[in-house]
Design a protein around this nucleic acid. Structure first.
Length: 884
RNA sequence: GCCCGGGUGGCGGAAUCGGUAGACGCAGCGGAUUCAAAAUCCGCCGCCGCAAGGUGUGGGGGUUCGAGUCCCCCCCCGGGCACCA
């Protein structure tokens, strides 16, 4: 056995052997239970970053663990290969996105292989390849014919200088990132998936996913946003016609407090009002500036303008002014809202700003309680009349000041005529019934979820398989003409979609009438490709259709692992797509991912200098060193400013290249460090020192094994009497086997599993003796420890196991229950909840015996001073608390 | 702004069901080894205090024999917000 731990040598050897023996090839025909372990596939951005290393190591630990436990494991890998960065790279370097993407894939595949992941590379796929996206196009045409996909107008960010549509991230402070031009909202036709049709099922389906984190399910439920309310209309007369302004509200109990309505800038009523109102026209134009991102809409200053039109309150007959509000979204609900400034904080602020009336129609329960107490002259609980009066004035409705109770549903109607005195539910029912009787409203369930717009005015994506014909309209491309292949020799220049300039792509004939027609040049949202790749991995070579029977054999995914940032969009779209495929008869399950693990981000320190033009120049942590407590740039010895600790990103230049780490310490160290530094769900802070610590442990492990193996072969301990020290070590060993299995399988927390093995190794190093019995225990401990670490550091584990047990395959160790038995246990002794000592009792002692032992102890006697205790709490196996 | 998380030593983190706060690792300190250094090994290491002891899990309140853990309020940090993936 080699005395020195040489990671590059053993890793190269192990990987070569795995590759030739194809050990990670998943069998489609196996008697063993299947375990489909899937990590979110990477976008091929160039090189692997630490987030990838973390994600794929987590998946690999679970995959390898389950393989050791006898499962038929499938862990595939592929490439989420379409997307915006390839176009940006094309603009920057004048390279076609396709060439750039394929080069990145080749490099990143090599990097993944160097990390020794147990991946079945025979199933590799790339979403930018026609043999993948052709089935996406095929499904699109099916869904289009079914009406699940439809076309409508929708708003996008328009850069008037580059004449192109911008992604939200390309809009910075309301301006285009390259041109700097003020961004406008523009209405263009787009294709939509009718995800709202599945809203209820997507919501209730969450209850069938016990293996998902609660927070992800909560976020999805809130995103879907089911709300039961009332949709009703304000009638009005305009241009000699009777019209209705429809709104939706969850607070129908406050309808009597409506003092104005607000409509979106794009609402027909706003457009009509602006016809002869230049000021309003200007305001609507202003509303159309800026990005379409909801975060921007929600944080901007709320502005509005009176249209001059009024509508009629359906219940009071009052005349209600209609305003245009920049915060009202045309795409949500009816594009119009009723405003009750007394009981909605946003409406309140708006009314204050524009001097609109505020009419209280609800009285909160706290307020009523104080009023009642005052009326009855009640002064209990030490409350004086003066106190009550002070409380009353603090709570009482004041149109000049917003108070949090104004939005309460716990209260009753006031100043509401016949509805006075009704509580929330009774008021909603009564008002809904009255509106319904007038034919002006009904109860309605509404979802916050909007239909999924998938048209992208970009080149590097899956072509939407539609042909536009002047006589036949939008015609889906027939199945036998698929795929619509994206030309790969294109270099975009940042101004519009280059496909529009490709006559060979655009010009075609109509599949229906055969006449000249134009091909759709929009491509699909890349979320579409990532919504079904997990199913295609089961049958990546099937060219007779989208999926074959193997999909049902492997699905659902047993364990899905990916970043928490995908909690809503990707995971919701994939769940939706799974149901679409189910309804097409392609899969039989309802949900794609049985268990989900959401990993935290990898973060690192940031360093920068201010440049003369006020911008920040960011420096990589690798180029910075600390000298006398100050951060210095190695290159010029001059100081840099320490920024925050943030998500590793290109923009902050704080990414740590895993390649350097692998080159210096080996893949096992990289894997061990990322698993040890933090539990998977938390963010992981990068630390060079921590890496050295992980490497040191592996060297120590190697040394312990080396020294033991040098002593000659010995069989693992198989039974018999042991001295106390060896017995204690065996107990620790079997406790560790139990813990590591539980940590990996149930808790999915690997840092504590590693810590437990580290403790075991520390204890092993302290075990003296070279007699045969002691050496047999040492053999048992080393064999087991190496096996326990195998899912995390597979290369060194395999090398060491080969030395410890030549010719025998790595196997997960079994727990020896008899080694766990203890005669005596230590309990904590508390007095009034404070730790005051310990007592030792027999493991079999009952509560009475423990209590007696506790009271007899020196520590208890000291505090009792001869008095009997008030109470004694005994928690078996844990502690005794004596209450004085 | 809205939705969802998080906050524990100098640092990363542990404490799994309300029961020993700080496992394990890093850094630091002391020692051994060495001509010397690296590497390695042994020991110490929350804060205040000579000690006895006190105190301590973002801040404030509460429930409990007992709270990092449960409840209420507040502060700070992060993720998502539908065209980044």
């Amino acid at each position: 056995m080699q005395e020195k731990y040489l990671p590059s040598e053993i890793e190269r050897a192990a990987q070569a052997q795995w590759a030739t023996r194809q050990v990670y090839r998943a069998s489609d025909a196996s008697d063993r239970p299947k375990y489909y372990c899937l990590s979110m596939f990477p976008y091929p951005s160039g090189k692997l970053h630490m987030g990838h290393v973390r994600n794929y190591t987590i998946g690999d630990v679970l995959a390898r663990y389950h393989a050791m436990r006898g499962y038929n494991v499938m862990q595939p890998m592929g490439w989420d290969a379409f997307g915006l960065p390839a176009e940006n790279a094309a603009i920057a370097n004048n390279v076609p996105p396709a060439a750039w993407t394929y080069a990145n894939i080749d490099h990143m595949r090599t990097q993944l292989q160097a990390l020794g992941f147990a991946i079945d590379w025979s199933r590799e796929l790339a979403t930018c390849k026609p043999d993948y996206y052709r089935w996406e196009q095929w499904l699109f045409t099916r869904l289009f014919e079914k009406g699940v996909i439809y076309k409508k107008m929708a708003m996008v960010n328009w850069d008037p200088v580059d004449a192109t549509v911008l992604a939200n991230e390309q809009v910075i402070d309301g301006r285009g990132w390259r041109s700097g031009a003020l961004v406008e909202k523009r209405d263009i036709p787009m294709y939509f998936f009718r995800i709202t049709q599945y809203a209820d099922e997507l919501l209730t389906g969450l209850d069938t996913l016990p293996g998902w984190p609660e927070r992800v399910k909560t976020m999805q439920a809130n995103w879907i946003g089911k709300s039961v309310g009332v949709r009703f209309a304000f009638p009005y007369r305009l241009d000699g016609k009777d019209e209705q302004l429809w709104v939706f509200t969850t607070r129908a109990d406050t309808v009597m407090g409506v003092t104005f309505c607000a409509v979106a800038a794009e609402h027909p009523l706003a457009t009509r009002a602006a016809q002869d109102n230049p000021e309003l026209t200007a305001f609507i134009a202003e509303c159309k500036q800026g990005s379409v991102a909801e975060a921007d809409m929600a944080t901007m200053e709320k502005k509005g303008m009176d249209t001059g039109f009024t509508v009629t309150h359906p219940l009071t007959g009052e005349s209600i002014p209609v305003w245009v509000g920049n915060y009202v979204l045309m795409s949500y609900g009816e594009g119009a809202v009723m405003a009750v400034p007394a009981h909605d904080e946003r409406d309140f602020g708006f009314a204050q700003k524009y001097g609109l009336p505020i009419k209280q129609v609800i009285e909160g329960e706290e307020l009523s309680a104080v009023k009642q107490a005052l009326a009855q002259g009640r002064t209990e609980h030490g409350n004086s009349i003066a106190n009550l009066e002070a409380e009353l004035s603090a709570l009482e409705f004041d149109a000049n000041e917003w108070k949090s109770w104004y939005e309460t549903k716990k209260g009753f109607c006031v100043h509401s005529g016949k509805y006075d005195g009704l509580g929330y539910e009774a008021a909603v029912d009564a008002i809904a019934a009255d509106l319904a009787a007038l034919g002006l409203g009904e109860k309605k369930t509404q979802f916050r979820l909007r239909d999924w717009g998938i048209s992208r005015q970009r080149y590097w994506g899956c072509p939407i398989p539609i042909i536009h014909c002047d006589s036949c309209g939008d015609v889906p491309v027939p199945a036998d003409q698929l795929p619509v292949v994206l030309p790969e020799d294109v270099v975009p220049d940042g101004s519009g979609n280059p496909l529009n300039k490709r006559a060979d792509f655009v010009n075609c004939s109509c599949p229906k009438c055969g006449g000249a027609a134009r091909r759709e040049t929009d491509t699909m949202d890349t979320f579409v490709e990532s919504s079904w790749y997990y199913a295609r991995y089961a049958c990546p070579d099937f060219d007779g259709g989208m999926l074959d029977a193997r999909a049902n054999q492997w699905l659902p995914v047993d364990q899905y692992i990916g970043g928490i940032e995908h909690a809503i969009l990707h995971l919701l779209y994939a769940r939706f797509f799974h149901k679409l495929m189910r309804d097409e008869g392609l899969v039989s399950s309802d949900e794609p991912f049985a268990n989900l693990l959401t990993q935290g981000m990898v973060i690192a320190d940031t360093y920068y200098r201010e440049t003369p033009d006020g911008k920040k120049a960011w420096f990589n942590p690798a180029d910075v060193e600390m000298r006398d407590g100050a951060a210095i740039l190695k290159f010029d010895g001059q100081p840099v400013i320490v920024g925050g600790t943030e998500k590793m990103s290109k923009s902050k230049n704080n990414g740590v290249d895993p390649q350097a780490l692998i080159d210096q310490y080996g893949a096992d160290t990289a894997r061990l460090f990322t698993m040890f530094a933090a539990p998977p769900e938390q963010s992981l802070e990068w630390s060079d020192a921590g890496v050295e610590g992980a490497h040191r442990f592996l060297k120590r492990l190697w040394k312990l094994a080396y020294e033991h193996v040098q002593g000659g072969a010995v069989a693992a301990f198989a039974g018999g009497e042991l001295p106390d020290a060896a017995k204690a070590l065996r107990r620790q060993l079997h406790q560790t086997i139990q813990k590591v299995g539980d940590d990996i399988e149930r808790r999915k927390q690997f840092n504590t599993a590693i810590a437990a093995v580290m403790e075991l190794m520390n204890a092993l190093a302290k075990l003296d003796g070279d007699d045969a019995t002691t050496r047999s225990v040492r053999q048992e401990v080393l064999e087991a420890a190496v096996a326990l670490l195998a899912p995390i550091v597979p290369h060194i584990s395999e090398a060491l196991y080969a030395e410890l047990k030549p010719g025998v395959a790595l196997a997960w160790p079994a727990v020896d229950e008899s080694a766990l038995v203890q005669d005596e246990i230590e309990l904590m002794l508390q007095v009034n909840g404070k730790l005051r000592g310990q007592i030792r009792v027999a493991a079999t002692a009952d509560k009475a015996m423990i209590e007696a032992a506790a009271l007899a102890s020196d520590a208890a006697q000291k505090y009792l001073e001869g008095q009997p205790p008030k109470k004694v709490v005994v928690v078996p196996g844990r502690l005794v608390n004596i209450v004085l």
